[in-house]
Amino acid sequence: MTDFLHTLFNPLPNGIMTVLMLIIAIYWIFVLIGGIGFDDIDLDIDFSPDIDVDVEVPDIEIDVVDTDSHIAVDKVPQGLFLRCLSFINVGQVPFMIILSTFIFLLWIGSLITTHFFHVEHLGWRSAFILLPLVIVGIILTKAATTPMAKFFKEINYQGEVATDFFGCSGKMLSNIEGKKVGSAEFLVNRNPIKLNVISLNGDPVKYGDTVIITEELPKQNIYIVIKDTY
């Protein structure tokens, strides 16, 4: 038993993955006893593209039409992260099921790898063996969750419930003006949420200003805001 516990936490890759696996196990224990559910934990994960709040992004083409105060975004690159999420069926299968599957596969992979390759002498550097395991884990998670995606499609699972941010008030975390995309924090259901925002008509909005969401750019995860003057 002692040897088994030692293996679970040594070397470092096993320790990291065992701790993560324990957290996942505790979550599912609470789910089984009815304490929490899929929607009761705020994972604070922003699936929108991570855009530098102080740099004007050249990849975003925005046409401002003064006649009707409308801002159109032609193209926003999704990025590798969002493609990975789509690849492992996020949105088709509940996120915690996907995360649990990924962590479990990574944990098993770490135990098997460290059993055949003795990396104890590498110390903290042994954690780098998790990098190739992450790639393998993503591929195996895709394979494991694809049948689940078909099942959830059959039961008409529509993904996580979308939040309506229209009219929400928040604080700017950067300066925006013209075509620059910035960041603002909004309090939604007592949870702070950071969103990518752009100014209506390109009017300057400064860090710390209170803003109100007026519109969401379709499929871009960018929200149009105006400065709250009251």
Rank of each mutant, 00 (worst) to 15 (best):
P49Y: 08
I51H: 00
D52S: 08
V53A: 11
V53Q: 08
V53G: 10
V53K: 14
D54R: 06
D54I: 02
E56Y: 03
V57N: 14
P58D: 12
D59W: 06
D59E: 15
I60C: 06
I60Y: 05
E61H: 08
E61V: 07
E61Y: 12
D63E: 14
D63M: 10
V64M: 12
V65K: 11
D66M: 09
T67V: 11
T67G: 12
T67R: 13
T67M: 15
T67H: 09
D68Q: 08
D68Y: 01
D68V: 10
D68N: 14
S69T: 06
S69Y: 05
I71P: 00
A72V: 13
V73H: 02
D74R: 13
D74A: 12
D74N: 10
K75S: 12
K75C: 08
K75R: 15
P77S: 11
Q78F: 06
G79E: 04
L80E: 04
L80I: 15
F81V: 09
F81L: 15
F81P: 04
R83L: 14
R83A: 04
R83Y: 10
C84S: 14
C84H: 06
L85Y: 11
S86T: 15
S86K: 15
S86R: 14
F87P: 13
F87Y: 14
N89I: 03
N89P: 02
V90I: 12
V90Q: 00
G91K: 00
G91R: 02
G91V: 03
G91F: 03
Q92C: 07
Q92R: 15
V93G: 10
V93I: 15
V93A: 08
F95C: 00
F95Q: 05
F95I: 10
F95M: 12
M96W: 09
I97H: 03
I97C: 04
I97D: 03
L99K: 09
S100K: 09
S100A: 15
T101D: 08
T101W: 06
T101Q: 09
F102V: 03
I103M: 09
I103F: 13
F104Y: 09
F104W: 07
L105T: 03
L105H: 03
L105K: 03
L106G: 00
L106M: 15
L106H: 04
L106Q: 07
W107D: 00
W107E: 01
W107A: 03
I108Q: 13
G109F: 05
S110P: 01
S110V: 01
L111V: 10
L111M: 11
L111F: 10
I112F: 08
T113W: 14
T113V: 10
T114M: 00
T114C: 09
T114R: 02
T114V: 06
T114N: 08
H115A: 14
F116V: 02
F116S: 03
F117P: 01
F117D: 11
H118S: 09
H118W: 07
V119C: 07
E120Q: 13
E120F: 04
H121N: 13
G123D: 04
G123S: 07
G123N: 05
G123H: 07
G123F: 07
W124M: 12
W124P: 03
W124A: 15
W124D: 05
R125H: 09
R125P: 01
S126E: 00
S126M: 00
S126I: 01
S126Q: 00
A127D: 06
F128N: 11
F128K: 05
F128M: 13
